[in-house]
Design a protein around this nucleic acid. Sequence first.
DNA 1: GCATTTTTGCAATAGTGTTGCAAGTTTTAA
DNA 2: TTAAAACTTGCAACACTATTGCAAAAATGC
Lengths: 137, 137
Amino acid sequence: MVVIEDILKKNQLSVTDGRKKILELFISSEGALAHADIEEKTGENFDRVTVYRTLNTFVEKGIIHHIPTTDNSILYALCKDNCEAGHHHDNHVHFICDVCNKTICLDEVTVPTVQLPEGFRPSHAEMVVNGVCGDCK
Amino acid sequence: MVVIEDILKKNQLSVTDGRKKILELFISSEGALAHADIEEKTGENFDRVTVYRTLNTFVEKGIIHHIPTTDNSILYALCKDNCEAGHHHDNHVHFICDVCNKTICLDEVTVPTVQLPEGFRPSHAEMVVNGVCGDCK
DNA sequence: GCATTTTTGCAATAGTGTTGCAAGTTTTAA
DNA sequence: TTAAAACTTGCAACACTATTGCAAAAATGC
């Protein structure tokens, strides 16, 4: 797939097998992925360390973003096109399905602003909703 | 302090040095605490395992609750009185100060409901706001 | 194609959380 | 007050997750 190489090149990254494979995984998967998912789905082809480094690189370049979770695991999902290196626009709500356990970016649902107490100034807000997703209902 | 022992007894827990010390810590600290904070602040007096088990016990009994974080660490904070074992009422917004790094429960700010896409049914929502707190402003 | 730059894999290390078990402490109730 | 029962603790061992340094390998630029 040429498209995948282009994404890497556009972000000034060397095109390597590992990066292509991992990026492909993100593109073809609906929900968010954890490090463990990636290791599993890429088979035994890559070193754990390579996966970690690739994920970090992708986050730095703004190709994927970090998703907050309630249960203390790290999840990643593809960024939309308006994300740039070091400046994410991922202010949407994340949804975790209690049934299929997928984490889904609700790109069309933005995090609402809340009224904070006197003296508090917000800079960023995250929201995670649990429940049953459209596929599992 | 007699009050601390009463809290433990009310929750059918044996009164031990470790539990008293850790509960005291929570009561006297403003923000949320991580496992590491507790180990640090209780000195070398307790085993790591004891701290883990005490925290789990407190969560089960509804004395403290789990706070979601963006950065994959586990934080705990005191529950308000209306929390009971197995049934938390901690649906308030949590605030993380970018300056002092404290995590604060905004008990008076409840998590807003958002409009989800067709077919999604929510069961629970968490919200974490970053920014500058009242003390650091 | 060759030199430079970047990435990878390995080994080692650190952090975090859990479990089994024996020893110690707290509770209960006589 | 004391002894048995119940519970908690500390230790050792283990598992999982993540990071770093370094040499070998691959990708890039010319």
